[in-house]
Simulated scan of single mutants.
Amino acid sequence: MTGLLRYARTEDVTLSQNKAHAFAAHNALVHYPSGAIYSFIPKNACSTLRYSMAIANNCIAGPEDWTWIHLNNGTFSASLPDLVRAPFSFTVLRCPHARLASVFLDKIVDKTPELWQLYRLTRDGFDPDALTFRDFITLLDEEDLLKVNIHWRPQEDFLVYERYSHVFALERFREAVPILQDEIGFTVQDARALTGHGTDRVEMIREGSFADTPISELAQMKRGGSLPAHAQLYDEALARQVAALYAGDLTLYAAHLDAQLLSFPDLLPT
């Protein structure tokens, strides 16, 4: 059976008014054939898993329908009985440093709505073409914008249970595929070729520092088929700043998975 509900007892209100629980429950999806719960976290293979879930729940037929998932994040959200009765639960965690770098190189460099949300919330307070990774982190930190968007919101906020049947590392995601098939009959369908979110189509640059490279230059590099590796966006100061911002996520990762898979395992909170 699944574990204790993580946020149910954290507020002295009726459960329907508990915002932390409601957020986590909204992002807990039901695999109807088995009753299993998947807590989805953006940037953690979530497109692949939501696509797989939509196929398993008989809502889409295949690749020709894949964009359906973007309009249906809440379609399979779990009810309280679903959460309590679930025979199996799983989620995927990712190194917080790598996840934030991935968000930046995907959403911010491509100037998707996430960038313009930041722009509005800072009252047009920066030049969109000149924004750097260091600037982005400073905005999240100093402007108190850490929770305004699900793509960089801390991973711990998405977990509806204290304990899961399985917690998988994105860094070793292929290990999840046979386990999910054997445990609940859930077939993982790789959606990276459909979404274009993977980095397997670009050359990853693993030398040099890109912390202060404006997104106009990074976008040009991306069009040319290359991008900095996630670690190349960090210097020591930025790595420590992000470790402080996402201390809860670092602790969470190390509690369930091999801490040596983190980008900066020496920055784990003590």
Results as ranks from 00 to 15, higher is better:
195 T>C: 02
170 L>N: 11
64 E>A: 15
1 M>G: 15
63 P>Q: 01
189 Q>Y: 09
12 D>T: 14
264 F>M: 06
199 T>I: 12
185 G>W: 08
213 T>Q: 08
242 V>A: 11
150 I>D: 14
180 L>R: 09
180 L>Q: 04
232 Q>H: 05
247 A>N: 03
107 K>Y: 10
215 I>H: 05
173 F>K: 07
146 L>R: 13
85 R>M: 06
157 D>Q: 14
259 A>P: 12
178 P>Q: 12
219 A>V: 10
125 G>N: 01
219 A>M: 12
208 G>V: 11
39 S>L: 01
182 D>Q: 15
107 K>L: 06
129 D>F: 06
270 T>C: 00
57 N>Y: 02
103 V>W: 03
234 Y>H: 03
106 D>Y: 03
168 F>K: 13
11 E>Q: 15
148 V>T: 14
162 E>P: 00
119 Y>P: 00
209 S>R: 05
138 T>P: 01
69 I>W: 03
43 K>F: 04
266 D>N: 11
188 V>Y: 00
193 A>F: 00
130 A>D: 12
139 L>Y: 09
171 E>N: 09
75 T>M: 11
67 T>N: 08
128 P>D: 14
270 T>P: 09
115 L>V: 02
93 L>A: 08
73 N>G: 13
260 Q>I: 00
16 S>N: 12
141 D>F: 02
35 G>V: 04
138 T>K: 14
68 W>V: 06
237 A>Q: 13
9 R>A: 15
43 K>M: 05
15 L>G: 14
130 A>L: 10
119 Y>A: 08
84 V>C: 02
143 E>D: 13
36 A>W: 03
68 W>E: 10
173 F>E: 08
18 N>G: 10
174 R>F: 07
24 A>C: 04
234 Y>P: 08
112 T>K: 13
148 V>E: 12
49 L>I: 10
84 V>T: 06
185 G>C: 08
35 G>R: 09
180 L>W: 03
23 F>A: 06
66 W>S: 05
162 E>L: 01
77 S>T: 08
113 P>T: 10
235 D>E: 05
143 E>T: 00
78 A>C: 08
90 F>S: 08
70 H>F: 15
120 R>L: 07
114 E>C: 02
3 G>F: 11
156 E>K: 06
